[in-house]
Design a protein around this nucleic acid. Structure first.
Lengths: 223, 223
DNA sequence: AGTTCATTTACGGTTTTCCGTAAAAAAAAT
DNA sequence: ATTTTTTTTACGGAAAACCGTAAATGAACT
């Protein structure tokens, strides 16, 4: 079994349970942090001391508070960790259940497992750890009932669409978004191109109008 | 100390910790459910057997799954429980930190404590339980750094505004919303009244337009 | 260089929002 | 009952979204 595991989870009501679970798996060296930045420090230190972590279990969203943070969420944390320790195994443990987000983590960050927090997470987290240890990867638990948008959609929705939706949700009108894009050098930035892209998004998500579209995007956690 | 406590929390990773905390407080009879409906059943049964619960600790949001549910969230649960057992003490334990929501729970449901899930929740939950047992009420923990909208705003935003925003977010245009209101007998339902109300909301929340308004409402958890 | 194809931009007409003013209706006060 | 005040509704013009079509640009290929 894994020897040295790092947990990045801000809610103590959850981290407590994860620690318990790991102890039950006879993992001896369990470390826990409440901030992403602290996780990064621990990873660095462990590498410097030549005693690297075998496994990182991380939440996705972390509450902001008085402390200044460089890494504000699990995504950023994992990306940063993999840069300095690409071989580390990673499990994301989060309440987020939108498949496009989950898939992007598998594809972009190459995480080993994603466990959706739910009514039987403890068992599932255990299972994920075991399974990774046995050499498996791309584990998604639970297997059923995931809010799905088709694979295709995930590919088609890019950074451009996200920035577009974000600006729209901030109350900017098409014209202002166009100027904003020109300022940032984002292409295309013509009014009608932006309009056309919004139309694509609207038909794709079956939104009646911009208001509806933003509501859906918020619901899906896209923005 | 309290003798009999009911926990309503869907995430096992959290309920585990709550149970642990209660055990440390020497509470002997701890019961736990993952669904609001089950909580209601337990409350009813305990009353029928003349061994009522002293305290209910409930989450606000519960994941939906295959099971059909009458009560879908903590708010509904607490309202239903208080109808048949008005004297029960209640603690809400949730990640929600918007003050208008918290205040509405204190004002409408008369909960005894609200503990926001965070980095020191275990201690805070303990503190809340102790404090209620000592006769205090209206306890809000942690005390700092709560996202605030002024008290006034909470009063001014009513059910009418919520339904209006909800319909708008579903992509209905003003005209359709008016018809919808007429069908449901909601007043006022003239086009221009609805428009005017939207204007109030927009100036209140400093929204540039409807899209912006819906984005803000989603962010604040209003809809 | 020329052709084809796809992408980006432009244009115009219709609908809806946006915003101010005013009339009508309802409620409250005298 | 009448006046005053508030609420609701109506109206109208300007701005923006909405939606289809067409022109311009650019990339890819011959």
């Amino acid at each position: 079994m894994f020897k040295k595991v790092l947990i990045a989870e801000d809610l103590d009501s959850i981290s407590q349970t994860i620690i318990q679970t790991l102890e039950n798996l006879s993992i001896t060296d369990i470390q826990h942090v409440k901030y992403c930045d602290d996780a990064m420090l621990k990873i660095k230190k462990s590498l410097a001391e030549n005693e690297p972590f075998d496994l990182l279990i991380s939440d996705l969203s972390f509450k902001q508070d008085h402390r200044e943070s460089k890494l504000v969420n699990g995504e950023e944390l994992i990306a940063a960790v993999k840069k300095i320790q690409p071989t580390i195994k990673t499990i994301v443990f989060s309440i987020e259940d939108k498949s496009f987000k989950i898939n992007s983590l598998f594809n972009n960050l190459e995480i080993d497992a994603y466990v959706i927090k739910g009514r039987n997470s403890i068992k599932e987290l255990e299972k994920a750890i075991q399974s990774i240890y046995n050499g498996n990867s791309r584990i998604l638990l639970p297997e059923t009932n995931i809010n799905t948008i088709t694979e295709k959609s995930i590919i088609e929705i890019e950074a451009y669409d996200i920035s577009l939706l974000k600006l729209l949700s901030k109350g900017l009108i098409i014209n202002e978004i166009a100027s904003e894009f020109k300022k940032s050098g984002i292409l295309p930035n013509g009014n009608s191109s932006i309009e056309k892209r919004l139309n694509k998004l609207k038909t794709y998500f079956k939104a009646n109008n911009n208001v509806h579209l933003i509501a859906l995007a918020k619901d899906m956690g896209l923005i």
